[in-house]
């Protein structure tokens, strides 16, 4: 599997580079420029140096949003990855039932994000929602517009409902790539289901799980539309995640400078975590340390 060393391969990558760089680099540079200035209008801006960074880093509401965000993304990974893998393991290996499962699993993924919020508003409202009505009917007071805990539970439920299928689809892809011979060998050795999972299925799923974990981490860390539509960040600030707070600042108050500084810090946090995940996941199971 040794790849040929050839710098001419760059020519194949150039179109990708150009099209991504166009949308990536110029806006990024602009945001860095914003973060150093106090902007009142197109022609009225003043250089303020690192002032915005200082302000943002010492903003206690931002710290709150960051802790909530870390807790949220942590829970997302802890719930969705094992659940997704379990679903993939339970799915039939082939046949029309497998196709049916794939199609059904993909449905939540194909709904625009703000519509996801709308679905869950309709589903959880105490008056017209099936879930809200049922839970209240059981004698448990439930209202995600008033109680922070209920809001959290609703947002988590929505997130798990929305994205676990992605993990399941990717894990399923990984499982299907395992040659039948491996399982036969395991049967001959009399390996238990757990041993098969630990020594065959899990290592073979490493690649897809890397994709799944990274995607789920990045997207959940940047989550905006769904909770915004569902709870608007409330009640109080209880479901104000980083992106919601950022939009409140950037659009609501039109504080471009601090919002830009905030974005850069935000980006650096995601970058660090993703890089660490990427490095760790690349190495787990391959033997080299």
């Amino acid at each position: 599997m040794d790849k040929t060393h050839d710098n001419k391969a760059w020519f194949l990558v150039i179109p990708v580079f150009v099209i991504v760089a166009f949308s990536a680099i110029i806006p990024l540079m602009t945001v860095v420029n914003y973060s150093l200035q106090d902007i009142f209008g197109p022609n009225e801006r003043y250089f303020v140096g690192t002032e915005w960074f200082r302000e943002v880093l010492n903003d206690s509401r931002l710290h709150g949003a960051l802790y909530r965000q870390l807790l949220f993304s942590g829970l997302v990974l802890l719930i969705e990855v094992p659940l997704g893998v379990a679903i993939a393991l339970a799915m039939p290996p082939r046949g029309w039932t497998a196709s049916l499962c794939l199609v059904l699993l993909a449905i939540p993924l194909l709904i625009p994000w703000n519509v996801i919020g709308t679905i869950w508003i309709i589903f959880t409202r105490p008056d017209i929602g099936l879930l809200g009505r049922t839970i209240n009917g059981l004698g448990i007071p439930f209202d995600h517009t008033a109680a922070p805990l209920d809001a959290w539970v609703t947002v988590m439920l929505m997130e798990v409902w929305h994205w676990t299928p992605l993990v399941a689809l990717l894990a399923y892809a990984g499982l299907r790539a395992i040659p039948e011979a491996y399982y036969q060998a395991a049967r001959i050795d009399g390996a238990s289901a757990w041993a098969v999972f630990k020594y065959i299925q899990l290592p073979k799923m490493r690649g897809v799980l890397t994709i799944a974990i990274l995607l789920r981490f990045m997207d959940s860390f940047l989550i905006y539309a769904e909770p915004f539509v569902l709870t608007g960040g409330g009640p109080g600030n209880s479901t104000t995640f980083l992106s919601i707070y950022l939009v409140k600042q950037a659009v609501g108050q039109f504080d471009l400078g601090p919002a830009a500084a905030f974005s850069i810090i935000y980006f650096l946090i995601v970058l660090l975590f993703s890089w660490v995940f990427y490095q760790v996941l690349q190495r787990v199971g391959t033997g080299d340390k």
Binding site: V16, V20, S23, A24, I26, P27, L28, T30, V31, Y34, L214, L215, M218, D219, L222, Y224, L242, S243, L246, V247, A250, V251, L256, A259, A260, F262, S263, Y266, F267, V270, L271, S274, Y278
Partner: peptide
Amino acid sequence: LLTNRMAPPAVFLLPFFQL
């Protein structure tokens, strides 16, 4: 290439619009 999924979109909207 991967890092381009990591930028919080909110603040990038204005530069996008301008660009």
